[in-house]
Amino acid sequence: MDGWGRMNRAALDDAYQVRAYIPGGDDYPARWAKAAAAFRAAHPPETIPVGPAAVDLFRPEGEAAGLMVFVHGGYWHLFGREDWSHFAEGGLAQGYAVAMVGYPLAPGVRIAEITAHVARAIDAVAALVEGPIHLTGHSAGGHLAARMVMADAAPSCLDRIVACVPISPVTDLRPLVALSMNAELRLDTAEAVAESPCLGAPLPGRRIAVHVGEAERPSFHWQAKALATAWDVPLRIAAGRHHFDVIDALRDPGSALMADILG
C-alpha cells in the first residue's frame, strides 16, 4: 500500500472496498439497525440537537463515571447515529454515560466541516456530563476521533479528554482523492493533507491506542499502522476480526478494546 500513488483508480477503489470481502457483508447494515433499534427501545436516549445533526446520550443508572464518545463510520457519507446505539452497551455497563455522535454527511458538507461539527457536538454533550471524556470511533469515525486530539481541531473540552482509541481508522486521506467515492467526498489534495491525522501530531497527555481487525483489508492495516507509527502509540490487532465485527468488542465491558478506551 505504500505505493498507492502509483495505483490506478480501479485498484484503489478495490483497496477501499469492504463489504465484498466480508462474508455476508451486505447484511451488516440491516443487522446493525435492528440491534440498535432494540437497544434504543430498552435504553431510551436523550437526543441533543447540534446544528444540522444531533447526539444520542445514553445514561447509566446512578451517577456517571464519566463520558464515553463514539463517532460512527461510513466513509463520511453513510449511516447515522441511530444505527449504532447498541455499541453503547459496554460503556453503560462500566457506569459511563455514552454519547453516539451524529454529523452532517457528504456530499452536503466537506470532511473539514464534519470535523468541526464533531468538535461542537462533543462540547455540547460534555456540558451535560461531568468527569473524564474517553473518545473512540470506527473507520471514518476513527479519523474523526483522532482529529479531536489535534491542536487545530480539538473541542473546547480538550482538558477533560483522557483517552482516544481510533478503531480501523482512515488516517491518510491522500489516497481517497483518486477514488470514485471522491465524487461524494469532494476532497482535494490540500484538504486531504490537512485532514490526515497521520500527517500531524496529537496533543500530549492523552492515552492513545489504535485498533484494527486481523482479517481487515491491507489498506486498513496500512492506515492503522500509519497512525500508530506517526504518533508512536500502540497498535492492537484483534485476532480473527474484520472491518465490520471488530467493533463488536464495544459491547463487551471486559474486552481489550474497552480496557484501552476506559482504562
Rank of each mutant, 00 (worst) to 15 (best):
Y96W: 08
A97M: 01
G91L: 05
A140V: 06
M100Y: 09
Y96Q: 02
L92A: 08
I122M: 09
A116P: 05
M100D: 05
V170Y: 01
Y96A: 01
V55K: 01
R160E: 07
G131N: 08
Y75C: 10
L144P: 02
D159I: 03
P169K: 09
L67E: 03
P60M: 03
A93Q: 15
G141W: 04
R110G: 10
R110I: 00
I133D: 03
G95T: 10
G108D: 13
P155I: 04
A124V: 08
G51V: 04
G62W: 07
P104I: 01
V69Q: 01
A99M: 09
A127R: 14
Y75E: 03
P169M: 07
V170K: 00
Y96L: 14
I48K: 02
A119S: 14
V162T: 15
W76H: 01
G62C: 09
R40F: 13
M150V: 05
A124G: 06
H138D: 06
G66P: 00
G73M: 10
D123M: 10
V165R: 00
G102Y: 01
L78V: 13
L128R: 15
L144Y: 07
F58T: 03
V170W: 00
A119G: 14
C157P: 07
Y96C: 03
A116L: 13
R110D: 00
D56M: 12
A121F: 06
M68K: 07
C164W: 09
G95Y: 11
H72S: 03
P107Q: 04
G73N: 08
D123Q: 10
A163M: 05
P49Y: 10
V69M: 08
V165M: 03
P52I: 03
F79D: 05
A41Q: 15
W84P: 03
E113T: 12
A163Q: 05
A151S: 13
C164Y: 01
E89Q: 14
M150C: 12
P52S: 12
P107V: 07
T47R: 15
A154Y: 01
M150L: 11
Y103K: 03
L105P: 09
I167P: 00
H117E: 06
E130D: 15
P60R: 00
T47N: 10
L128N: 05
G66N: 02
D123C: 07
A153E: 10
A112M: 11
A140T: 12
H72D: 01
G131H: 07
F87M: 14
A53Y: 05
S168H: 00
H138C: 04
D159W: 07
P104M: 02
G74S: 11
G66E: 04
A93R: 14
G95P: 04
A112Q: 15
V170P: 00
H143F: 08
E61Q: 14
A163G: 11
A93Y: 05
A41K: 14
Y75L: 10
P49K: 10
R110Q: 12
M68N: 06
